[in-house]
Design a binder for these strands. Structure first.
Lengths: 338, 338
DNA sequence: TTGTAGGCGTTATCAA
DNA sequence: TTGATAACGCCTACAA
């Protein structure tokens, strides 16, 4: 049975704490914000009063006065992609530790949505913006980001290099990861190898493709452009690209896919066409999704490091990490598919 | 080459707009907030001035003055589960439409995290809290939620019934969905059928199990409690529970899993044990994950309706939807696995 | 070491 | 229909 007798209790203010502690509001504010220059007796009295009243400072008032809020906006390429969901979880945990709120904005891989957010951002008193997408940004958005930085908003690019624009960037080494995976496939006698993934419109995607090319070249193989399939990150794209390649009669014994989603789509197309994985074709993905181990065949993939990435972002936000470019190494998580 | 000449441009205030339009700040505020009682000339002058200066009201100041902010907190059971990621995307889009920000908080299925958030919530001037989890809540958290409601925070339960506590709830019909799926399996001659999913600690999970039981009973079958496997929502749990059942030599020709993640884990265990899906064992999941169509066998699943759910939440937030309980119907999306 | 006073930007009340 | 003024809650410069 619902209890409808809800009493509206006014939340305590600094003034209330001050009254109870027998000091001024200024003293309360200073002590609660960690000022050291107070008599122990005063400090304890104030802290006790705050505790007793359950005082929590009003973020709106604080933000108005300080000119800076307590939230960070996380802009993700697509929250439904595993890597971004994982990133969101770790970022939220890291920010919570810092006492910051996490605002999530889904870009859905659309420039227009990014622009829309950035245009509305200046008024929001954000502490920072973490832009997590590998999609290449249009010039005007970079300009907007730099404008935000001028307003003291900390801007951090995640999974994409923007350090050439003076924007702190935290990335994973796509180039050497792709090279690593390609080399591993070659070692197992796989050749020709196809590359499946976003290349146009994504600098990091292009990096991955470059790593793949370099590995082939270094092993003395020619790069066949018919085996480079430019596709977006979703399942369908992987399925379609692979199905078309099979239909065209292209020969390949391995696929390096730029995401686990693409890899799954590719595997489905292969199996539908009667090819076995990894028997006929080996497949490696990127992102080490949590479901990768529960596929059959289980999916070999390049590791993803949301916790480390979030940790570095945290360091930057706290001013502890210096430097414009931070890189985390990926490694190969070997399973059945490749 | 980075252009380091960033000019700090002061953002315009109502006062600036007022000056440009030749009116008072109060007039600007009123017109920009949609007051009707002004001469057209004035209104146009003010709107033009605001546009020209690119004025955007400061949310902190507004929130301080109005006593209410512009953000909604979305508390999700686990952002890395597909259903919650999808929900997050749709909720964000819906809120953006309303001009509201989305704060995401990951509960990681832990009561302590929910409590932690709710204790810090009162100070935050949230417009609303959307609690999206099927996990049963402890009493004290319900109390905290009701306290928040008393402070004019709109509280909405998503995927769980809390209407008995006076909390608006938006759910999907778990009971009839489970019944539907079970009946479909029975029609195809599948029996015995196992149930795999969270039961303890989740009212909606228990509902699903009840639907399964009812379908069996109505078809004149006994319910074998050895075929009801209480497991959490993740892949591993599905894998483990199924592997154990196989090891114990339990006989079953179908599994109804309470999530697609569990279903995938179950399929992996079945295939590892040499059972074919759906040949030997049919499997149906819940959630219609985007990858379900790209599994082989592709996964039959009960539909999930994040867009409809978000739409109803929006209606409630806008005060358009009345009533404490809203239900969306699931249907069966038939694919290969079941 | 502590207090007083003023202002952050907006909106609501009151008066005109 | 419009304007002046005060107040939301907090923090900090200045004073003591």
């Amino acid at each position: 049975m619902p209890d409808d007798s809800i009493a509206i209790v006014a939340r305590p203010r600094v003034a209330d704490v001050a009254r109870l502690a027998g000091v001024s509001a200024a003293t309360v504010s200073r002590i609660l914000n960690g000022s050291e220059m107070f008599a122990d007796a005063t400090r304890i009295r104030v802290q006790e009063a705050a505790r007793q009243l359950g005082f929590q400072p009003d973020p709106a008032a604080r933000s108005l006065r300080r000119g800076q809020g307590d939230s960070i906006a996380l802009l993700v390429g697509d929250i439904e992609q595993g890597v971004y969901a994982g990133l969101t979880r770790h970022m939220q945990a890291a920010l919570e530790d810092m006492g910051l709120d996490l605002l999530v904005y889904d870009l859905a891989h659309q420039e227009a949505r990014l622009r829309r957010f950035l245009e509305r951002a200046p008024a929001r008193r954000l502490r920072g913006i973490v832009l997590a997408t590998t999609d290449t940004l249009p010039e005007d958005c970079i300009g907007l980001l730099r404008g935000l930085m001028a307003q003291q908003v900390k801007v951090i690019a995640l999974r994409q290099r923007l350090d050439q624009h003076g924007i702190a960037s935290v990335i994973q080494d796509e180039h050497s990861a792709a090279k690593l995976a390609t080399a591993a496939l070659l070692r197992k006698g796989r050749m020709p190898i196809a590359f499946l993934g976003r290349i146009s419109g994504s600098l990091m995607g292009a990096e991955r493709c470059e790593g793949y090319r370099d590995a082939l070249r270094e092993a003395g193989h020619a790069v066949d452009s018919a085996l480079i399939w430019d596709a977006s990150y979703r399942y369908r794209a992987g399925f379609t690209a692979t199905a078309e390649a099979l239909q065209r009669g292209l020969a390949f014994s391995a696929i390096l896919a730029a995401s686990d989603e693409l890899a799954l789509g590719a595997i489905a197309a292969l199996q539908d066409a009667g090819r076995s994985v990894p028997g006929d074709v080996a497949v490696i993905g990127f992102g080490d999704a949590d479901w990768a181990a529960y596929q059959r065949p289980s999916l070999t993939s390049l590791s993803e490091h949301p916790a480390e990435l979030s940790g570095i972002v945290r360091g930057i936000l706290e001013g502890k990490a210096t430097g414009l470019l931070h890189e985390v190494k990926r490694h190969l998580v070997e399973r059945q598919s490749g």
